[in-house]
Design a protein around this nucleic acid. Sequence first.
DNA 1: GTGAAAGCGCTAACAT
DNA 2: ATGTTAGCGCTTTCAC
Lengths: 346, 346
Amino acid sequence: MKTVTIKDLARSLNLSTSTISRALRGSSEIGVETKKRVLELAQRLDYNPNPVALSLLSSQTNDIGVIVPEIANPFFAIVIAGIEDVAFAQGYHVVIYQSHEDYEREVLNVKHIYNRRKDGLLVSVSTSTKDYAHFKTIHERGFPIVFFDRICEEIDTHNVSVDDFEGAYKATEHLIKQGCERIAHVSGPAHLLISRRRLHGYRAALLDYGRPIQDDWVVAAAYNTTSALVATRGLLAKPERPDGIFASSDNIAIGCHSAITEAGLTMPDDIALVGFSDLPMAALLNPPLSSVAQPAFEMGRSAAELLINLIRNPREHSTSISNVLKTSLVVRKSSLRGTAVVKNDE
Amino acid sequence: MKTVTIKDLARSLNLSTSTISRALRGSSEIGVETKKRVLELAQRLDYNPNPVALSLLSSQTNDIGVIVPEIANPFFAIVIAGIEDVAFAQGYHVVIYQSHEDYEREVLNVKHIYNRRKDGLLVSVSTSTKDYAHFKTIHERGFPIVFFDRICEEIDTHNVSVDDFEGAYKATEHLIKQGCERIAHVSGPAHLLISRRRLHGYRAALLDYGRPIQDDWVVAAAYNTTSALVATRGLLAKPERPDGIFASSDNIAIGCHSAITEAGLTMPDDIALVGFSDLPMAALLNPPLSSVAQPAFEMGRSAAELLINLIRNPREHSTSISNVLKTSLVVRKSSLRGTAVVKNDE
DNA sequence: GTGAAAGCGCTAACAT
DNA sequence: ATGTTAGCGCTTTCAC
């Protein structure tokens, strides 16, 4: 694993290392002839500067760390694609970390990112995180952080999210317009802001349309299918069974979907169902799942732009930017009653 | 972003940096009293050794690079979980790269991994890769590489795969036993070994059971849903429509699934369908998809073990290990005719 | 038991 | 236009 260094070039060419260095980086104060010889030899020997040495010198790595709960969740996979899109263009490499919804793991990830001198951090917090000290500590030391999707209000830094309230409102409104009388909500963990915002949107729509708000029609689940399946079974067992469900995420909606099918009920007639995120898999379910589409790729792009900006212009103590993106409701068969044509995007 | 260095400790304690260094790493030749003072101060000041400096010194990063086509593909997401499982336990951090099935991108990834001094490479090659020079070059320089899933035969190094032949054989045999007479195969790109092996398994089963092998019942698709959808439409338009399809992957099977439904045909009666990989989503389709399950997590674990072994015992010029894992057929409704009970794992 | 010095690969003053 | 020196943070001879 012998690699060629700047020293090797210097020796071969009978020049000093600084001359080589300058030639390589195209400094103007170098003999054009010398420059050519250096470049040529470097090429021939496949010289590559050692980025580790560069990092030590500049104390920056050109890496940005991204922490997501799970890469297996297509939503995050797409966000990451958006992040990579702008990071790559700006010369940064993105290093992906998974918290697996585990607080301890998240803390470890943050430490690793900070200690390994990543240039900044993009993060969507884990569901089990209730204490934000690990973020706060490095934020106070001036380490650039941008939150996305599952943001943390306690820390004053840029963040990117979608208009969860409005998305939830539109979904609920749609269910009302489909003639649902008893609309339930399968929510996410209450300490996550997105859960609360979606819950508020749901409530606001019911209120605006003069529908009763029943607390026992709101059940909480973790943001996964199994947990939602269990929660929905409980909902369906109630004497006054709901005829419409707004799920706080698509993974939750899939759990609802299974529970409904399992109970021998049909969508949308017995129960109309709407999810949140519009993952690719939504269209594959039977019946296909209506869902509030989030601009995941754009979210990634925006978060990366804000972070890179923060890295390059450290703390002008300007106020933090909250970029709130728009959602759009994609109606499919799981919620569309009657004979109207189904909007199909596949 | 001021961080505390070994020098700071030295100054505070009126000791030399070498003493600090020794105390920190518990060298035995240090005064027990001094050692205590150092450790305590380090603790108090939250001292963390600069890993970049360590890397420069040792020319190893404790990072291993992993290249997969897409993290959004749950199969790879699970393999990565397996990799992280053993890497983490061995003190390595895994850095994920996506080729997005793009050759150029893969080359860039390999360069980055090599130049940034990662300790080794785990890779499942992109579909568009036909030239393996980028791997060969670094392999010849002694850089540790292990291939998994989509392996490269041209390079003599460890690799981990599943018994694609047997998996395909079992799937096809199952279709035959379900009474299918005209069994088609939607294959993957022919230059990928997994595609060819699965194709061979399919052919062998037909042969063993005395079924005719018709070349026009084999169509190739990329390993994605859209491409498979198109290919399957072609298949269904044939005068002698197949009554069974073995798909070379689950993503392909989903495309088949859509095409079949779209044509107004039913599974399993009109056409029985079997996929490959048994992704979580297979069970969610309607009807649920039968599939050849791959031990993805175990594949990741094994690949990581082999790589770490290679890193720690560089090239004893021992022969390369090919670890071939077993598959198992998961039968669901998409292929199970008659009244038998469906195995349901959800 | 502890310190001084060299060096990992590179760049950036500061010479000349 | 090119060479010399110092230093990024750390470990490791080699001295004493």
